[in-house]
Design a binder for these strands. Structure first.
Lengths: 338, 338
DNA sequence: CTGTTAGCGCTTTCAA
DNA sequence: TTGAAAGCGCTAACAG
């Protein structure tokens, strides 16, 4: 099972390996006839270049790592595809790692990506991540890291986020303007910046419309569906239950919808519901789920563009860390209206 | 931005790089004190081993490539996660490629994975793939390739499939037993083996129950939702429209459901619908979609196990190509019953 | 246009 | 227990 190398080709053709290398890499300084002979034999031997050797030598792999906490929901796969398209145009390959929301796995993956010398990193971290040392390993060595969705706060790295605050604000505004007063919020862990931004949007909308904030209607939880189920039931069991729910994301909102239905209540009459991200499922269920849409593919594209900017920047002319904020858009469906 | 190497450590400690290498790789023949000194300095310098160099030398990357045609639907991500879990246990990393159903992309990805010397491959090919030479590059060099879902036919490679035939048979049997006689089938391209198996299950079920086969009710298409929409409308416009539809997959079935509803018809009264794969969405929509469930994670785990068997087999004791067939299970919901 | 040489970072004999 | 040397497959000066 010996894999042919340029030395095999060189020997069989009575050439030096440099010439073979040149012929194979479309180097100008090679006799056209020589190149033909090399190409032919390479084809015949089914020669496949060894990228490991090249990367070791050139000190670049032309590979980018993408780290996400999960990729079962539509969001992360779509971001990845968006990023991959941009990266592919520039000749970069992509290695995808999903941590399954586990900090330990994230650290291991980061180490492994570093060991295989990726040229850059695009990251949305786990909900457990509080220590970012495994990413500092990269930045300290000048390997660019771009965050999206869940971003490394107070750090000089490029980031792509959406306007979570305004998205949340508009969602709650919509609920108020359609007559709701007791609006609950199922929020994510406050380690996640986007979770906090959405909470702030919620609070400010209430404030702006003089709707009193009831702390018992604001619950922060760990984003598991089991907990969502428990908390929605808890809210509905309250002596004064909410008349609306703004959920941190669509899976939570859909879980809420199931709970409401299973209790024989109606959406939106008994509880209006708004989600976040506009998962395609939202349009398929009944009633349709009102949701704050994010430009998902664009997030990936933007992250890739920022990374490429850093990748192509020269050492003496480094690209400055940039934060790109993309707009959200409220999509109104049956879960909040008629 | 110089990355420290074992030579840096060796120099600073007045050792040879061999000793440093031994200390770092937990080799037994190193003085414990020496090891401590090395480990300490490595930590201080933030030394990270260069996997490229190791792979080049050892001729193994401990990396496995997984190639899928898409990963927006729940199926492929879940297979990947299942495979990844198994592979991680054995100390293998995973590189994920999605071809976006493009043959050209698949070929490019395969070349790139080969160039970076993955130790093995797990593949579900695109619907366009008819030429498998890019996979033969691997098998010919003794690099194991395991197919799943969409498999390389008539080839001595390991495969993981589900019992598509029986799944389809039971779906159609269920439709017949609940009183349907004009059962349409939206089938996939006949380049895909599983598509043909499902078609055969459909045909045999009709035959077994003496339901005449009407060729105008069997439509093979390219799996795009736009076409699905057109063909469902076409079927409903027939002078004698079908009273049931067996769809090749859940997205198609859900598209059909939307079409039926948009025409003011009812499911299942006017058209009963069955899908394939039991996408989680199927339980969320109304009516719930009857579907043939596959053991998705197990497909990935099984594929990983087969690959590992090949990976750990010695050259003189190679693992034999094996085909694993996993069972399907009909999940009945509102789209075919009350 | 082609060959020679050095070396990317690491592991692994073979000697000491 | 440690060091010296060879070499994985390749590219890139430098000479010729």
């Amino acid at each position: 099972m010996h894999q042919p190398t340029i030395i095999d080709i060189a020997r069989q053709l009575g050439l030096s390996k440099s010439t073979v290398s040149r012929a194979l890499t479309a180097h100008p300084n090679v006799n056209e006839k020589t190149r033909q002979r090399v190409l032919e034999l390479a084809d015949k031997l089914d020669y496949q270049r060894n990228q490991l050797a090249i990367s070791l030598l050139t000190n670049q792999t032309r590979t980018v790592g993408i780290m996400v906490p999960e990729f079962i929901s539509f969001f992360f796969p779509k971001v990845i595809i968006g990023a991959q398209e941009e990266l592919a145009k520039a000749g970069y390959n992509v290695v995808i790692c999903h941590s399954n929301e586990s900090y330990a796995t994230e650290v291991t993956s980061a180490k492994s990506l570093f060991a295989s010398r990726v040229d850059g990193l695009i990251v949305s971290h786990t909900k457990e991540t509080r220590n970012f040392d495994h990413f500092r390993t990269f930045t300290r060595k000048g390997i660019p890291v771009v965050f999206f969705n869940r971003v490394w706060e107070n750090e000089e790295v490029s980031k792509v986020v959406v306007d979570d605050y305004t998205g949340a604000y508009q969602a709650v505004e919509h609920l108020i303007q359609t007559g709701r007063r007791r609006i609950a919020h199922l929020s994510g862990p406050d380690t996640l910046p986007n979770s906090r931004s959405r909470l702030n949007g919620y609070l400010d909308a209430l404030k702006h419309y003089d709707v009193p904030v009831d702390p018992s209607l604001v619950i922060s939880y760990d984003l598991t569906l089991e907990k969502a189920n428990i908390y929605v039931n808890h809210l509905l069991n309250l002596p004064e239950p909410p008349d609306a729910l703004f959920a941190i994301n669509d899976p939570t909102a859909i879980e809420a919808l199931k709970v409401v239905k299973s209790r024989g209540l109606r959406v939106p009459d008994d509880l209006a519901i708004v989600g976040f991200s506009d998962d395609p499922i939202s349009a398929l269920i009944e009633p349709g789920l009102t949701s704050v849409a994010q430009p998902v593919s664009e997030i990936g594209q933007e992250a890739a563009r920022l990374l490429l900017a850093h990748l192509t920047a020269s050492a003496d002319q480094p690209a400055a860390p940039t934060t790109v904020t993309l707009p959200t858009r409220l999509v109104v469906r049956g879960s909040t209206g008629s």
